[in-house]
């Protein structure tokens, strides 16, 4: 755990520019995707569109808040999934540090630590912009909203981390795929689309929704909308229940697969 934290910080220092590009840019782009309609069409059209996604008539502040927060979800999902898959892959396939890892620890421990440490840090960095943004729009109450959102996103990203770890293991150790990013890049959009972030979920093909429904992202989306709409005591039990179930499922699965993989790698 400590080791991974340290490595993250070192990498962060070393690749500051890269990180800015890979973390901040997605935020900016997703921000634009959501705001793009404003620039080409009437504000009311946009409000209508979002109202239809959310299912409730919104006013302009709510739309801003919902879009602000939604645009943080996009990079959270894509950064976590991409990073976990690509890091494991490159460590074992071309960075040649696998022996360093294998001689000190087990795949299971390494993967679990990676799947939890990285998403927590990344989510924090990716969503940092919400603090000023939300306080600007909502004042002090914005901080409260931020804390809620951050908690929801952190839990979501932990599940996503484990979810990605499973994919990462499959790709790295059980296939001969040499371009993992093509897979890593297609999972997040599927999850996001299936969660109804772009369109209402029922208009999305079931196969894509399957990707989403095996993560807590749809529930997170719902929760975020609810929080953003200013409910003071949002009902979080549904979200928590789904997250808890998925978290324990994936912890067990990753743990189990980790042990199997550890043996396979040392064969």
């Amino acid at each position: 755990m400590k080791a991974l934290l340290y490595r993250e910080l070192i990498w962060f220092k070393r690749f500051l520019a890269d990180y800015i590009v890979s973390w901040v840019l997605p935020s900016a782009i997703s921000f634009m995707i959501i705001y793009l309609p404003v620039t080409i069409s009437d504000v009311n059209v946009v409000i209508d569109k979002f109202s239809s996604i959310v299912g409730v008539r919104l006013d302009i502040t709510s739309v801003i808040i919902v879009t602000l927060i939604m645009s943080s979800l996009i990079p959270v999902v894509s950064v976590v999934i991409n990073d976990i898959i690509q890091t494991l892959f490159s460590e074992f396939k071309f960075l040649e540090v696998s022996s360093t890892i294998l001689e000190t620890t087990t795949i299971r421990r390494y993967l679990l630590a990676n799947a939890l440490v990285r998403p927590i840090l990344m989510t924090f960095f990716v969503t940092m912009y919400l603090i000023p943004a939300l306080t600007a729009v909502l004042g002090l109450h914005g901080l409260v909203v931020y804390i809620y959102i951050e908690l929801a996103l952190q839990l979501t990203s932990m599940v996503l981390g484990l979810y990605a770890a499973l994919f990462a293991m499959l790709i790295t150790f059980y296939t001969n795929i040499s371009r993992p990013w093509s897979i890593a890049n297609s999972i997040p959009p599927a999850i996001l689309a299936g969660s109804g972030i772009y369109l209402q979920a029922y208009s999305i093909p079931p196969i894509l929704r399957l990707f989403a429904q095996t993560t807590p992202v749809p529930q997170a989306v719902e929760l975020i909308q609810v929080i953003a709409l200013g409910m003071s005591a949002p009902n979080i039990t549904h979200f928590l229940a789904v997250t808890a179930v998925l978290l324990s499922t994936y912890l067990t699965l990753t743990g189990f697969m980790g042990v199997k993989t550890d043996i396979k790698v040392r064969k």
Partner: peptide, 25 residues
């Protein structure tokens, strides 16, 4: 262990950082 002495480290970070990382692991 010192195996295949020409690899086994993260290439973009320094020797010192690699060692600290390894120690923490």
């Amino acid at each position: 262990v010192a195996l295949d002495v020409s690899k086994g480290f993260y290439s973009s970070i320094s020797g010192y950082e690699n060692l600290v990382f390894y120690g923490l692991l």
